[in-house]
């Protein structure tokens, strides 16, 4: 009995950890898309964040500094995208795809000599006394800093988008760029800020993989999470809390698969690897079927280039 309980608690903890990189990457993309920017390059931004964060953390021994570096690196990658897609008005889809490929290559190049190096851990936020409270302790207080930060970010984004004037303006820009411009809002500047935020979040998501989750640098270690983050945003119909739910479904099914394999049950491992992607999308499609709601939350100016005098 006690054994099963502690397994369950371990599964919950592992689920949150597996979901956290997705939460970051997807919430960043959600903000960008709500402003009308479709940045398909999340995978690239995550990898750049992962490798730069790892390099900084490994050479300074300071994991928090690694996260700052990861965020900045993600922003840097997003800035390349912004300059092309926002200022030069290149096609957003093509530019994002290019960024995904470019970021992966750049990260592999930078990380060549960092493969297999160990990292110092990062202290947990809550003291042992809290964490050892039976059941509630590990579930509420047992996680690392970034898990809590991701939850705060989702709450913050949800609050910002729906309760503040800034969020209203951002949504307005994503909904109808010409009207926003006509009302005197700086469409390009708002899109730039949203794009940079998306980059920073993707960078942190990538950093979480290399600094805490694994913690190691390996080439292409994001394993498609950037793409699933992208799908999460769409299937969660651009709503922050659904993104969180989707990320945890993904994390949970991933962990369950590992548990099943660990228990020695014979299932094709490719099937196991595939299931989280499928399960996440099925769950999100089922909860977001209402056509009216989808229409209400889809940013109508998504991926449309903006020129002030069109």
């Amino acid at each position: 009995m006690g054994d099963e309980l502690s397994t369950a608690i371990a599964v919950i903890a592992a689920t949150l950890r597996a979901g956290t990189p997705l939460v970051f990457a997807a919430i960043g993309e959600l903000v960008a898309e709500r402003a009308g920017v479709l940045n398909l390059g999340i995978e690239g931004m995550m990898l750049v964040g992962a490798v730069v964060g790892f390099m900084v953390a490994a050479s300074t021994g300071l994991t928090p500094l690694g996260f700052v570096a990861a965020a900045l690196a993600g922003m840097g990658a997003a800035a390349i995208y912004g300059a092309l897609a926002l200022n030069l008005m290149t096609n957003q889809v093509a530019t994002g795809l290019a960024l995904a490929i470019f970021g992966a290559g750049l990260a592999a190049f930078l990380g060549q000599s960092w493969v297999g190096i160990p990292l110092p851990g990062m202290a947990l936020p809550f003291p042992e006394t809290l964490r050892s409270i039976p059941v509630a302790g590990p579930i509420l207080f047992g996680h690392d800093w970034l898990v809590y930060l991701s939850l705060l970010t989702v709450a913050g984004v949800a609050f910002f988008l729906h309760r503040t004037r800034g969020g209203l303006i951002l949504r307005a820009v994503g909904e109808n760029q010409e009207s926003a411009h006509a009302l005197g809002y700086p469409v390009l500047r708002i899109r730039w800020l949203a794009t940079l935020f998306g980059g920073a979040m993707a960078g942190i998501g990538g950093g979480y993989l290399s600094l805490i989750y694994t913690p190691q640098w390996a080439e292409n270690m994001t394993a498609g999470r950037g793409w699933i983050a992208l799908a999460l945003v769409v299937f969660a119909t651009w709503r922050p809390w659904r993104v969180l739910l989707g990320a945890y479904v993904f994390g949970g099914v991933t962990i369950l698969g590992l548990q099943i394999q660990a228990a020695g049950i014979a299932i094709n491992s490719n099937l196991v690897a595939m299931t989280p992607y499928l399960a996440t999308i099925i769950v999100l499609v089922l909860i977001s079927r209402d056509a009216t709601r989808i229409r209400l939350h889809t940013p109508a100016s998504l991926a449309r280039p903006f020129h002030p005098e069109a």
Partner: peptide
């Protein structure tokens, strides 16, 4: 019109 379809009337006016 330069209105935002998915926003409410009050939100549209606030934006102006």
């Amino acid at each position: 019109f330069t209105l935002f379809e998915t926003l409410t009337v009050a939100e549209n006016i606030a934006l102006g």
